[in-house]
């Protein structure tokens, strides 16, 4: 079932064609509408505070994206726990030991990147499904988090990182949080890596025969996701000022939902940073609208669940994959 089966698409409606090529358009529309609703419901919309609460989810979505783009069901379940681990290491281990400054950022990225690389290496060496490998890693990292931080760890209020949730010399801190993964992704766009990544995600057999080092691309994709998760952990701890091992699983599901909503096909080879961020924005703004409308907390799982289902079904419909009949 390789490229040979690709259908002719001459008669495809223009809108669908556009959406298939630019999957993030749906999330863009949703973001604009929801933002408008938010501004109406909440005339004094605090931009910096809202951006600060948005940043962890956005970076988590960015972290889930590379491995999904790399294809073959490359969903990284361990993103959530790795975020928490990063927060715990920062608040509980680096900061108290004089490493709480800017140098913490590369350390946390390396930590997350290393875990991601281990995921990727296991996937390619043992030829296991990424979901199983990263799910195992999810349990392992949660266990490590529980060991490292049996009780929540507080971040000192005067730590520089807290300004990531405020402002840095008048400049909104959250924008810097968002800028780091965006800049990294843009830098990678100047190299061959991103093209290789999309080629591998689109059709790994083709990429392999064309001479691309498929395994290396996959490992780097997982490592990149891990590194982003490291950043996301820092951003989260900057916002909530505690690192709590019991919240290890909070971001995995919702980050994947954001990526899916942003038009990144879970089959791989399409989508990207713009989609992930816009998907995250849509979800965040829905949350915000619900809060404004005073919908009780206990409803949230139902709403997230429904949104995720709708997002992936719509995504599958738009991606133009042949659906239905298998024979």
């Amino acid at each position: 079932m390789s490229a040979v089966a690709a259908p002719r698409r001459a008669g495809e409606p223009r809108l669908r064609r556009l959406l298939r090529r630019h999957g993030y358009l749906l999330a863009l529309g949703l973001t604009i509408v929801l933002l408008a609703v938010n501004l109406v419901l909440q005339p004094n919309f605090g931009w910096i505070a809202q951006l600060a609460s948005f940043a962890p989810l956005a970076v988590a979505a960015a972290a889930s994206m590379p491995s999904i783009v790399s294809g073959r069901g490359g969903i990284d379940m361990s993103i959530g726990p790795v975020m928490t681990l990063s927060g715990i290491v920062f608040a509980g281990y680096l900061a108290p030991n004089g490493l709480g400054g800017l140098e913490a950022l590369p350390i946390l990225m390396l930590l997350g990147g290393a875990i991601g690389a281990v995921n990727g290496l296991i996937v390619i060496w043992l030829r296991l499904s990424p979901i199983v490998v990263t799910l195992a890693m999810y349990f392992i990292v949660i266990g490590i988090n529980l060991k490292l931080a049996p009780t929540p760890m507080r971040l000192a209020d005067d730590n520089w990182a807290t300004s990531l949730a405020g402002s840095i010399g008048g400049f909104p801190g959250p924008l810097i949080s968002l800028a780091i993964p965006v800049a990294l992704w843009a830098l990678l766009g100047l190299t061959a890596f991103r093209r290789n990544l999309y080629a591998v995600g689109g059709n790994d057999a083709t990429a392999f025969t064309a001479g691309i080092a498929v395994s290396a691309v996959r490992v780097v994709a997982f490592a990149l996701g891990g590194a982003f998760a490291g950043i996301a952990g820092l951003v989260l701890v900057a916002l909530v000022r505690t690192a709590d091992s019991s919240t290890s699983s909070a971001y995995t599901l919702i980050a994947i939902a954001a990526v899916a909503l942003g038009g990144t096909s879970l089959a791989g080879g399409a989508g990207g940073m713009t989609g992930a961020l816009l998907g995250a924005a849509s979800i965040f703004l829905v949350q915000s609208v619900l809060a404004d409308a005073q919908v009780p907390q206990t409803w949230l799982p139902a709403i997230y669940g429904a949104m995720l289902i709708v997002a992936v079904v719509v995504g599958a419909l738009l991606s133009g994959e042949r659906t239905g009949r298998r024979a």
């Binding site: 999309y198 001479g211 691309i212």
Partner: peptide
């Protein structure tokens, strides 16, 4: 088998790898 990456552009496919 025609081995092409369907989601990529013609340009990307020509320089694949």
């Amino acid at each position: 088998e025609v081995l092409a990456a369907p989601n990529r552009t013609v340009f990307d496919n020509l320089w694949l790898g």
